[in-house]
Design a protein around this nucleic acid. Structure first.
Length: 647
RNA sequence: GCCGAUUUAGCUCAGGGGUAGAGCAACCGCCUUGUAAGCGGUAGGUCGUCAGUUCAAAUCUGACAAUCGGCACCA
């Protein structure tokens, strides 16, 4: 036989018999063989020691390859499992994959682990790495594999094997005395993991991700090629912690939350300014895009949500109000606090007779919603019980879906760009298991979104089964300053709700038709989006958005009268300004306002008062720009314009 | 909701069976100051809530609540 293996540089290596990846690497060079960790065969990552027996494109994976981190992390998970089983006999192993930036392993053990155990486990892991046992792949007979794990008391592993598809090869990996069920691939020996790893946190996780199953103990770790990379990652984690919006929200006095209203936000004056400036910006943008704004009630009779399907589908997560019913004391009159705005907007649509000439009708609302989120789900501003969506529902004909979707995609992109974000990723979430409406209607709705995305020229991938219960959705993700992705905007096509709630329009044919309803948000929720913005800019908001744009600081109280004059002039020009005439040193004032992330500090002393000037210091710099008061008013107020109002 | 951790002054945190301590902030006074903390003083807390054990609980035990890290959920 002859075997032709094509290398990345286009060279072809020929062999007369199957070769292992290691043999292939050796044939290329000794140092490559020494550095080899695995081999990529037609794009599929495989063990170095597995024989290659068919023609393929091959690539030797070394520590420098992008795939190396996945291999290191996956192997590190095995090392963690071995270490834990050596230290805590009787602990059962389950699964332990590599994930972004690291790995985890889920263990079953009656006693809880403690983070105090981490040092001990890490020491043991280093010991195992030092032993440098070879990782040996073995193919096993299914029944024998089940017996093997059951004999060890590993019932989770046995269950995994039982549930593997019948045609799948069962592979076990041995590292010294320790054996794990694993699909692989792995590096040739444990020593290749190195010691640039660290255990980070302890968490509970359901077996197989199902809340009906047992709760396992998950240990998370991070692993890198070398200590420099590890240190850089740990520094990044510290940076992320520093820009936590809950911490900054407190430091900048933007908002607070407290036990008496768990999951709801108390916006303080500065936070509420931020909120209103952002809201007004979005309001201008949608007005320009021909939306009309409405305001609908909070409380509705339960019959509305029963008709819409929400009562059955999400009733447990709604806040409900039971009113005493004098006639039937056992059957209180039930009301529900709105968890979303759609039914209310349908009721607005239904007022009066609508014609096809009225469509598309774009009904917007900064809609205040309540959802009774589970305790463990809440997270600062990101996940709350009371929130406001920048919501709108576009009532249109089927023919208009595509153009409406397209113009929404463009509006969203433009808004994100003005707020300093790119659309990092787009996904299409299709029909979920729990849904209303026929398959034909779902086919139509999904097809509409596919074609809209194509028309918008947006690359997207599928998020299978993750649509809303009434229709498929497009999810827009943005990327923040430290590279994290957040899903904010969505567009959903809904053929069901208008029908269920009896919304109709008179068509060109004089007949009644149900409109199609597009549910869409750009920011998602004001709360969540502001949380993301705080973390994105670490509290240093763009000038147009920031609650306090400028502070005027006096050096001595001689300058107080002039400072008042500067304050009045800037306020008059529409800037949000504060005045600091405290009897403090200028150093202290600069420090205070810098820590408060005020972008502009205007210092005035005797000199400035006499010359009618200001000394401007910008946040993050230490230069002083001297300018006349008139120039300051003119330039700064122009600079502080929201992006959509700039010329 | 589940697993684990946490809850002490406005904030950040130390302490710990005999009813509490620091720094910063606040307040008062002095200083009139030139670009990231001037000096001195005063005041401030039933130690998350409710029970239990104890001569004695902020400290030990239990329940509950909230928060944090995850998991599950997210119309």
């Amino acid at each position: 036989m002859s075997l032709r293996l094509t290398l990345p540089d286009g060279n072809v290596k020929e062999f007369s018999a199957p070769v292992t990846g290691l043999e292939l690497a050796t044939s290329i060079g000794k140092s490559l063989a020494a550095a080899a960790l695995a081999v990529k065969l037609d794009g599929e990552l495989r063990d170095l020691m597995r024989p290659i027996d068919k023609d393929a494109k091959v690539e030797i994976v070394t520590r420098k390859s992008p795939e190396a981190l996945d291999l290191i992390r996956h192997d590190a998970a095995h090392v963690l499992a071995e270490a834990v089983q050596e230290l805590f006999p009787g602990t059962q192993v389950t699964i332990g994959p590599n994930i972004e930036n690291g790995f985890y392993y889920d263990f079953a053990r009656a006693e809880p682990f403690s983070t105090d155990d981490f040092a001990k486990i890490e020491d043991k892991m280093r010991e195992i790495v030092k032993r440098d046992a070879p990782l040996v792949r073995e193919e096993w007979n299914r029944d024998e594999a089940i017996k093997f794990f059951e004999a060890k008391g590993e019932k989770y592993k046995a269950e995994l094997i039982r549930d593997l598809p019948a045609d799948q090869t069962i592979t076990l990996y041995k590292q010294g005395e320790w054996t794990d069920l694993c699909r692989g691939p792995h590096m040739p020996s444990i020593g290749k993991v190195g010691t640039s790893f660290k255990l980070l946190k302890l968490a509970g996780a359901y077996w197989r991700g199902d809340s009906k199953n047992a709760m396992l103990q998950r240990i998370y770790g991070t692993a890198w090629r070398d200590d420099k990379e590890l240190q850089a990652h740990l520094t990044m984690l510290e940076e992320a912690e520093k820009r936590d919006h809950r911490k900054i929200g407190k430091e900048l006095n933007l908002f607070h939350m407290q036990d008496e209203a768990a999951g709801s936000v108390f916006w303080h004056p500065k936070g509420w300014t931020l909120y209103r400036v952002l809201e007004n910006y979005v309001r201008r943008r949608i007005e320009k895009a021909n939306y009309v704004e409405v305001h609908t009630p909070q409380l509705y009779d339960s019959s509305l949500f029963k008709a819409s399907g929400h009562w059955d589908m999400y009733g447990d997560n709604m806040f409900k109000v039971a009113l005493k019913n004098e006639d039937k004391p056992d059957e209180p009159h039930m009301l529900g606090v709105k968890p979303m705005n759609c039914p209310g907007h349908v009721l607005v649509f239904k007022q009066g007779i609508k014609s096809y000439r009225d469509l598309p009708l774009r009904i917007a609302e900064f809609g205040n919603c309540h959802r009774n989120e589970a305790h463990g789900a809440m997270h600062g501003l990101i996940r709350v019980r009371q929130f406001v969506q920048d919501d709108a529902h576009i009532f249109c004909t089927e023919d208009q879906i595509q153009s409406e979707s397209l113009s929404f995609c463009e509006l969203l992109r433009s808004v994100y760009a003005e707020l300093g974000f790119d659309v990092a990723r787009v996904r299409l979430a299709d029909r979920p298991e729990k849904r209303i409406g026929s398959d034909e209607v779902w086919d139509k709705a999904e097809a509409a979104l596919h074609s809209a995305l194509k028309a918008a020229g947006l690359a997207y991938d599928m998020n299978k089964g993750d649509g809303a219960f009434y229709g498929p959705k497009i999810e827009f993700y943005l990327k923040d300053a430290i590279g994290r992705e957040w899903q904010c905007g969505t567009l959903q096509v809904d053929f069901n709700m208008p029908q269920r709630l009896g919304a109709v329009y008179v068509g060109e044919d004089g007949q009644k038709h149900h409109p199609v309803m597009l549910h869409r948000v750009i920011l998602g929720t004001m709360h969540r989006f502001l949380g993301i913005m705080i973390e994105d800019c670490a509290g240093k908001f763009p000038l147009w958005l920031t609650p306090v744009q400028a502070v005027i600081c006096t050096i001595t109280n001689d300058a107080e009268a002039y400072a008042q004059e500067v304050f009045a002039a800037l306020s008059e020009a529409g800037l949000r300004v504060e005045l600091d005439i405290r009897s403090e040193k200028i150093n202290a004032k600069i420090r205070d306002h810098s820590l408060q992330k005020v972008p502009l500090i205007l210092v005035v002393g005797k000199k400035e008062a006499e010359a009618q000037t200001v000394a401007l210091r910008r946040l993050g710099g230490d230069a002083q720009e001297m300018m006349s008061l008139t120039d300051a008013v003119k330039n700064l107020s122009a600079e502080a314009l929201p992006p959509d109002l700039r010329k």
